[in-house]
Structures are given as C-alpha cells and as structure tokens.
C-alpha cells in the first residue's frame, strides 16, 4: 500500500476568539503516516500533540489545512459524517480509561459495534474474542469500577480494536498507570502493531516507550521539530510495515 493512511497538509489549529487573543496550538503541520506504522507523538506539555491527535481522530476540525485519513478528507465532513467516520475507522484509547460505568466490560467493548449496526449476538461474540485475545476474557462481566487501572486501559484498547479500525489513536494511554502496568499496556499496542499490522498514533511522554515505536514525531510550540523513522526498530518489523 503506497498511499499513506494519514496525510496532513499545512494543518493549523487556533483556539480562542471572541475577546480572547487567538492562540495558535498547531502551526502548519504536514505529516504522512504509512499504513501499519506505529507512531509516537511526543513533546512537552502544551506542544500541541493532543490537539493534533484530536484532529487525527476527527474529534476536532483544523482552522486551516487538510487532513486525509484512510482516503477520506475529514475536514470536509460534517458533524455526523465525522461521528460515522470515528465509528467505522477509528479506535480511541485515552489517558484515563474512559469506559462507561453503567456497562460491563463486554458491553463497553461491543457498544461501538452495536452503533454501527452489527447484530447484538455477533457483536457480543466478537467483543468476547477480542477480550480473550487481550487476556481479559474472564473479566467480561465486571463493571469498569471493579477493574484495576491497567485492566481498564486494556479494556479500552479492546474497545478501540473491536470495530476493526483503520487507525488506533491513543492519548497517553500509559500516563495514568504505574510503570509495570504501563509497560503491560504498551506491550499490547506493540503487539497490535506487530501481529496485526495496525496503524497506531500514540501521544506519549514516556521516552522509553517512544523509542520502541517505528517513528517518533516531536512537536514543539505547535510545530514538528523532529521526525525520525527507525530503520530497525527494537521490535520486529510488521509484515506490511514501513519500508525504510
């Protein structure tokens, strides 16, 4: 696949307006991510990495520039169109687990599928399979409140993966975990990238995790200041990963 799955062209995002001095969060960001790449977005607080992630997640619209995800120009989509796009092609993992407290683990995982129109029984089975794959099968009945932080985050990953998204976006998924659980969660991502060839964009503060990805993009004050792809990442290269 030669066409990049993520293409941004001159993306800027300005916040504020009415009375408040506009603040440029992202300034002219142009990046391409090939399919199957595991990308780490790093930078100091306020560098704009989360904003970029939300833009890539079709949760927000750029002030200027274009964003093309999996062949779709998302800055042209309306609110419903972006919701549908998120539902069908994107998977999110946030810093805090962000699971719905009223639903059990299985329900949290299959809800996006249900929204997409997958029959309940199939959605349940698939969600269970995904949980099993992540070693969470025996937790399926529990409510999020009954899980440890690491477990919650792995369930979030299961939910993100269950809809078979084109891109998985993670916003400091290990930021709220102790180092042991953080490593465990990171390994799940690494495994998803390696074994399933998933495209993953992950915002992280943790340099040791960032180094174990295929590529590291460093932002500073809303601009890309460093972008390097490792020719031989410390983990095995995915089958359909980037070639150099």
């Amino acid at each position: 696949m030669t066409e990049p799955i993520v293409e941004t062209r001159g993306v800027s995002r300005t916040l504020g307006g009415a009375g408040v001095a506009p603040q440029t969060i992202l300034d002219d960001v142009t990046i391409d991510v090939p399919r199957g790449q595991f990308v780490a977005l790093t930078g100091a607080s306020g560098s704009g990495k989360s904003t970029l992630l939300y833009l890539l997640g079709a949760l927000d619209r750029p002030t200027s520039g274009s964003i093309r995800l999996d062949g779709v120009e998302i800055s042209e989509l309306d609110d419903d169109g972006r919701a549908e796009f998120r539902n069908e092609r994107l998977g999110f993992v946030f810093q805090f687990h962000f699971l719905l407290p009223e639903f059990n683990v299985l329900e949290n995982v299959f809800l996006p599928m249900l929204r997409r129109g997958v029959p309940r029984v199939e959605a349940e089975e698939h969600a269970y399979d995904v949980l099993a794959l992540l070693g969470l099968a025996d937790l399926w009945k529990r409510r999020p409140g009954q899980l440890s932080g690491g477990q919650q985050q792995r369930v979030s990953i299961a939910r993100a993966v269950a809809n078979d998204p084109a891109i998985i976006l993670a916003d400091e998924p290990t930021g709220n975990l102790d180092s042991k659980n953080g490593a465990l969660v990171f390994d799940v991502f690494a495994e998803l990238a390696r074994a399933q060839g998933r495209t993953i964009v992950m915002v992280t503060h943790d340099a040791s995790f960032a180094e174990r990805t295929d590529r590291q993009i460093v932002l500073k004050d809303g601009r890309v200041v460093d972008d390097h792809t490792r020719s031989a990442p410390p983990r095995a290269a995915p089958a359909n990963g980037p070639q150099g």
């Binding site: 809800l111 599928m113 249900l114 929204r115 997409r116 129109g117 997958v118 029959p119 199939e122 959605a123 089975e125 698939h126 399979d129 995904v130 794959l133 269950a162 809809n163 078979d164 399933q196």
Partner: peptide, 18 residues
C-alpha cells in the same frame, strides 16, 4: 481478526434505547 459486518438498519434506535 475482522469485526463482523453491520447488517441491522434499526441500529440507531436500538442502541439508543439500550
């Protein structure tokens, strides 16, 4: 692992109710 394909048209209403 492929996610199952959507088939139900009344998904919105049902999911919303759920």
């Amino acid at each position: 692992m492929k996610a199952p394909a959507p088939r139900e048209r009344a998904f919105g209403a049902r999911t919303v109710l759920f």
